[in-house]
Design a protein around this nucleic acid. Structure first.
Lengths: 232, 232
DNA sequence: GATGTTTATTTGTAGGATAAATGTACTAAT
DNA sequence: ATTAGTACATTTATCCTACAAATAAACATC
């Protein structure tokens, strides 16, 4: 289909550093570099790519940040296992996030905690349940829950999935929830849904109920925070 | 409790670049920089931090990669909206991922697609359903589904959540699934669960059923790929 | 008023110099 | 022969200077 107004294509004007970064990542993956394998030294890379060592170092600096390479003086650089969440960790900051991203993150939590029900039931152990019980019993005696209490309970759930990336992901998302949580406190909204027995109920279901029940309970436990979440 | 073997505390030996990077990120967030605000120029930063301009540039290079700052010649640098997924995008490469990370990612997909049921039912529109119907009807006539077909169907679901970060996340995860999907094909395992009507069933439920039904159907649609997922 | 031209400023790139770290080879002592 | 000590070579880390490229802003020109 021919449109009347042809849009001009953006001209890619990547900096040298960008190009070297891409080249290096391709080079590493396409040549089957594995963690532990050592890379050519900086001057050699610079010469082969016909750029200054500065440019190479700026690109390498990025790869270091992502955990793709590690450098030791004299030993040179070695490939290493990239850290999946290192990059996202640095920008997961509510004070500079857009409203849109914030909303996306909130929805993500809702989706995740709804989605882990099956995992929890498939993987729960007596030890896990005991530890979780200790948490909810302690909280049952309290008048109201702090955000630390929330973190302790939900954190334990993430932990019980046995998925480390998951567990870490939660700690990344926390600052975002704190940020909004504080708003709720300021507005006094929390009082209407702060329910100290809610965590206990979730625990009880996890111990003797079904995944479906758990999901339902989790849904009503979380949705007050996200009252507008389901609207588009 | 005193342990017999005292562990030595890690000594922080961050490079100058690491420290400048952290300092800059703190500076930007704590001083309430918002997208569009302009930063001091490189030489000024270097002078104030008492480091060379090279170090500052290596740190800035990282922030540029994350989308936190943009630079224009002569105009200097301006804060910009960080890209949440830019960092993860570069390391989401199955050929250099650890088995553990791979497993985590697989489980993540399962959790996500189980968790989006509520969103889909809350946000589905007639337009969405029509488009999804076109996809599944097309696929119903096929003998078997390619990975492109899978992507088309599941991608549309992600799209229907109305969560852009989500949708992009899916495109990031795809290479990982491709990687393993190919293994299945090689082993001939796919034949036992390749079901061309499965997508249609999911669509039908989405159109007239309930979120619970949908989740159950999705569960049985996906678990064959992840037969070992629920074991710890 | 729209369009060239100059200028000043800031980033982009290059290249060299020195410091720091450390594996390796060599030497000396026991 | 093993160990301890020393010198050397290599590579990254940092710093410095210089120049190129781009461009916003001011000015000049038509």
């Amino acid at each position: 289909m021919i449109t009347k107004a042809n849009t001009l294509e953006r001209i890619e004007s990547l900096s040298m550093t960008d190009r070297v970064e891409n080249t290096l990542r391709e080079y590493l993956t396409e040549n089957g570099f594995k963690p532990g394998d050592s890379l050519p030294n900086e001057t050699e890379i610079a010469q082969q790519l016909n750029v200054s060592r500065n440019v190479v170092r700026e690109a390498l600096s990025r790869l270091r940040m992502l955990g793709m390479v590690e450098t030791k003086t004299r030993r040179g650089m070695v490939m290493s296992q990239p850290d999946l969440l290192a990059g996202i960790e640095k920008v997961m900051n509510p004070s500079i996030m857009s409203q849109g991203n914030m909303k996306d993150i909130f929805e993500l939590r809702l989706i995740l905690e709804m989605g882990i029900a099956e995992f929890l039931f498939a993987r729960k152990t007596d030890k896990d349940l005991k530890e979780l019980e200790a948490i909810v019993l302690k909280q049952k005696g309290l008048k109201s829950l702090t955000k630390e209490d929330e973190i302790e309970f939900h954190g334990k759930l993430y932990e019980m999935t046995g998925n480390d990336t998951f567990k870490r992901f939660q700690t990344l998302l926390l600052p975002v929830f704190d940020h909004v949580f504080l708003n709720y406190f300021e507005k006094g909204i929390h009082t209407e849904f702060q329910n100290t027995s809610s965590h206990y109920d979730l625990f009880a279901i996890l111990k003797e109920g079904t995944a479906d029940e758990f999901r339902k309970a989790m849904h009503s436990h979380l949705t007050p925070y996200y009252s507008t979440s389901f609207q588009k």
